[in-house]
């Protein structure tokens, strides 16, 4: 996949030099050319997260998590909720929180697969983020327009003023290049914003 060669910022947090070096090697194997940050303690990591512009890909080894794995991870998530995170851990450590993990004893192909997916998933989110046609609020307004509501009704339903509704509608039409209500309805259905069955109710 072409996009895998994009440069991204990766943090490898581990006290263990062999792990750090190993991760770097694996990254080059799966075609990631990272801008790397090595950190050796959890405090160092937190500092870095506060300074760096997002997004950082975090690869954490269990050894820097101060024995209290779950709590430390939730602290990290609090600082930077958008950073994708993967944890390298001993297979005996069990984790309740829903995070990606690689066990130390996993074999080559499993590890490669997990790391590749780790970078790929974020990538898809990225590309979506880069071209949002409508904002969430505009989508809300569009749905109501498509269902045939008048401006006043939309304003009441979404707790905004009529002028705001009009502004949203103007922006929607400009962005989409679609002026008629029928056209907007088709657009909303193409994108599954509204269900044609429900729309008729």
């Amino acid at each position: 996949m072409k996009t895998n060669y994009r440069i991204r910022k990766v943090v490898i947090a581990s006290n263990n030099y062999i792990y750090t070096l190993g991760i770097k090697t694996i990254l080059s194997v799966i075609g990631i050319k990272p801008e790397l940050f090595d950190v050796e303690s959890i405090d160092e990591l937190k500092e870095l997260l506060k300074e760096q512009a997002l997004p950082l890909f975090l690869i954490l080894n269990e050894d820097i998590l101060n024995n209290n794995v779950e709590q430390t991870i939730s602290e990290i998530k609090k600082i930077s909720p958008d950073c994708p995170l993967i944890l390298l851990k001993n297979s005996q450590t069990s984790i309740k929180a829903n995070i990606k993990c690689i066990n130390h004893n996993e074999n080559q192909s499993e590890i490669l697969k997990k790391l590749t997916n780790f970078f790929k998933e974020k990538n898809q989110k990225d590309s979506k983020k880069n071209q949002p046609i409508l904002s969430d609020r505009e989508k809300d307004v569009l749905k109501e327009v498509a269902l045939g509501l008048a401006n006043k009704e939309i304003a009441d339903k979404l707790f905004i003023s009529i002028n705001t509704v009009i502004t949203h509608r103007k922006n929607i039409t400009e962005k989409l290049g679609i002026k008629t209500i029928a056209g907007l309805t088709v657009y909303a259905m193409l994108n599954n914003y509204i269900d044609p069955e429900k729309g008729n109710l």
Binding site: G177, I178, K179, G183, V186, Y187, L190
Partner: peptide, 16 residues
């Protein structure tokens, strides 16, 4: 023509 123009944009921009 307004509707025709909408149809054009639906096809050009948004049809999978």
């Amino acid at each position: 023509e307004v509707k025709l123009n909408d149809l054009k944009n639906l096809i050009i921009k948004f049809l999978p």
